[in-house]
């Protein structure tokens, strides 16, 4: 018996491929939620009154201080006891998105706080509306510098997607494990999954770098 058998590689490939699609979809959808919701969190934290801002900070802290797996379990297994039944796919991606939104909001916040106070004052002096000030003055300066930080969480979320297996979503790593169990051959499937994670992470990190570079140039911040 060989250590590495190409036969199993061939067998596992289509099976793993379907899992890879699930993994990528979960990552993209989850991160889209995290990006948008994280920004909303950060803006509420900055623009809300003392009470609202405090409540937002506590919420973010709460989400960051409990394990992702626990949050997934809570929504998927505890929810139904109170009549809240959410399909696994929506629960999984939703929790991933909200969990990482908490982390992203801190990254956004760092970017927002780094914008010079004078930019707010000039916006007031020119009578710009709060919405216009955020959209046209503050965020274009706050976001490009923190793209690398957001990108780290993008890759972090990608590597956390195997947690979805805990609520019976057949993502890639789970499929690799199942394949191994069915064929009594783990090495090929698990290795292939590993290579896929590695390649995706490297490509994603290159894309993040390019986006950061492009945004900084677009807004003349370098």
């Amino acid at each position: 018996m060989n250590i590495w058998d190409w036969f199993y590689v061939q067998e596992a490939l289509p099976y793993l491929y379907r899992g890879a699609v699930v993994t990528v979809q979960a990552t993209l959808l989850g991160f889209a939620i995290a990006l948008v919701l994280g920004l909303v969190f950060a803006i509420i934290r900055h623009a809300g009154g003392p009470l609202v801002s405090r409540a937002m900070a506590e919420t973010v802290e709460f989400i960051r201080s409990t394990p992702l797996l626990l949050q997934v379990f809570f929504v998927y297994f505890v929810g139904p006891q109170f009549g809240i039944v959410i399909p696994a796919w929506i629960a999984g991606i939703g929790v991933l998105g909200i969990h990482y939104a908490a982390y992203c909001s801190e990254v956004y916040r760092a970017g927002i706080e780094a914008v010079d106070e004078g930019q707010w004052e000039a916006s007031t002096a020119l009578n710009l509306s709060p919405l216009r000030t955020w959209r046209v003055i503050i965020l274009p300066q706050a976001i490009p510098p923190v793209v690398p930080g957001l990108g780290n969480y993008f890759i972090g979320m990608f590597k956390d997607t195997p947690i979805l297996a805990a609520i019976a979503i057949l993502e890639m790593l789970q499929r690799a494990k199942n394949f191994g169990a069915e064929n009594y051959r783990y090495i090929e499937a698990i290795t292939m999954a590993g290579i896929f994670y590695l390649v995706f992470s490297l490509v994603a990190s290159a894309i993040v770098q390019a986006v950061g570079y492009w945004l900084n140039r677009r807004y003349h911040l370098t």
Binding site: G118, A125, N127, V136, I137, P140
Partner: peptide, 28 residues
């Protein structure tokens, strides 16, 4: 009715000189 010029300029760094002067007249 009031305009202000600051010690540290506070120009919008991501806009050209022209765009700096156009932003508020257009949006406000």
């Amino acid at each position: 009715k009031i305009g202000m010029v600051f010690q540290h300029f506070n120009l919008f760094p991501h806009m050209t000189a022209l765009a700096n002067c156009m932003e508020a007249p257009v949006s406000v």
